[in-house]
Amino acid sequence: MAETRSTTAPRVVRREPTLTGELLAEFAGTAILILFGVGVVAQVVAGQNGDDDSIHWAWGLGVTFGVYVAGRTSGAHLNPAVTVALAVFKGFAWRKVLPYSVAQLLGAFVAALIVRWVYADAIATVDPRTTFDSQGIFSTLPGAGVSIGTAFLDQVVGTALLVFLIFAVTELRATPPAANLAPFIIGLIVVAIGFAWGSNAGYAINPARDLGPRLASFLTGYSTAMREPGGQFYFWVPIVAPLIGGVLGGGLYRVLVERHLPDQTDAEQPTGRIPAEDD
């Protein structure tokens, strides 16, 4: 008897990520971001190798790699300001906002500890007393002559730009890049913000990016980590201002662009998905 073979294609079962998987992805993606971002600042300040340009590019590449790591599983927010804006405007589940933010904070904290340990000798050489001379490796500070009020405004504007452009890049009804290029474009957004808005307050534009490394530095010898050189508490600025800026940027995108985009049929929809959508 001749052998018969089934021609039925095997059924492909799509496994949806669990909340735990999403949180691990946010942790890992944010850790990658900080390993490159804080790492490059440590190399420039403590290793005395590189300049502002290398800092801007490494931060942008860190974002790119972090989004590639986490994008498929969690949408790769990597930033509580982005997570909140997505909950306000893109239907992301509010019940996930706090867990995502905690995972991002922990990823930034652990990555900053790694940088602190790896660069400990170099930091001790250039700044043995762990003063403001090297504190900026881990957390942002206002530039010389920049008031806290100006730094706050700077962070609102910078984060508004970030979220506005992320929404533009991921809007399927507009002209988004191919799904595999979106992380690279988002990284370029961060590079551009660094070049254009980096001097006033260090473009934290991300509460987790700033607070996680700030806590890591505080616990490893930087007694002034929560303050700026004038002695005032500063840690709250890169937390509150980006959260406001993210919502502002998302709102401006909705009012100025999104509501005026043409509707598209399913056949016209580009491939890919908006990473913020809560399935």
Rank of each mutant, 00 (worst) to 15 (best):
E3L: 14
E3F: 01
S6G: 02
A9W: 04
P10V: 03
V13N: 09
R14K: 11
R15G: 00
P17E: 06
E22Y: 01
L24G: 03
A25H: 04
A25G: 11
E26L: 12
I32A: 13
G39L: 04
V40C: 01
Q43F: 07
V44L: 05
A46V: 09
G47N: 05
N49D: 14
D51A: 13
D52S: 09
W57P: 02
A58C: 13
W59D: 09
V67T: 05
V69I: 10
G71V: 10
L78R: 12
A81R: 08
T83I: 01
G91R: 11
G91F: 04
G91P: 14
S101V: 01
V102W: 04
L106M: 09
A108N: 05
A108S: 12
V110P: 03
A111M: 11
A112E: 07
A122L: 13
I123G: 07
A124M: 04
T131W: 03
S134R: 12
S134N: 03
Q135T: 01
Q135L: 15
Q135M: 12
G136H: 10
G136Y: 09
I137Y: 12
T140F: 06
G145F: 12
V146I: 13
G149Y: 08
G149S: 10
F152E: 07
F152P: 04
D154H: 03
Q155F: 04
G158M: 06
L162P: 10
V163L: 14
L165N: 10
F167M: 11
F167A: 07
V169R: 12
T170D: 09
L172E: 15
L172R: 15
R173C: 03
L181H: 02
V190G: 05
V190P: 11
F195A: 12
A196N: 14
W197E: 14
S199G: 08
N200V: 06
G202H: 12
I205P: 08
I205C: 10
R209K: 13
P213S: 09
P213R: 13
P213L: 06
L215P: 00
L215D: 00
S217V: 14
S217Q: 04
G221F: 09
T224Y: 00
A225C: 05
G231H: 07
F233Q: 02
F235M: 00
F235I: 00
A241D: 05
A241C: 04
P242S: 13
L243N: 07
G245W: 06
L252G: 02
R254V: 11
R254S: 13
V255K: 13
V255F: 13
L256Q: 02
E258R: 10
R259L: 09
Q264T: 03
Q264F: 02
D266E: 12
A267Y: 10
P270A: 09
T271N: 14
R273S: 15
R273Y: 15
R273V: 14
E277H: 12
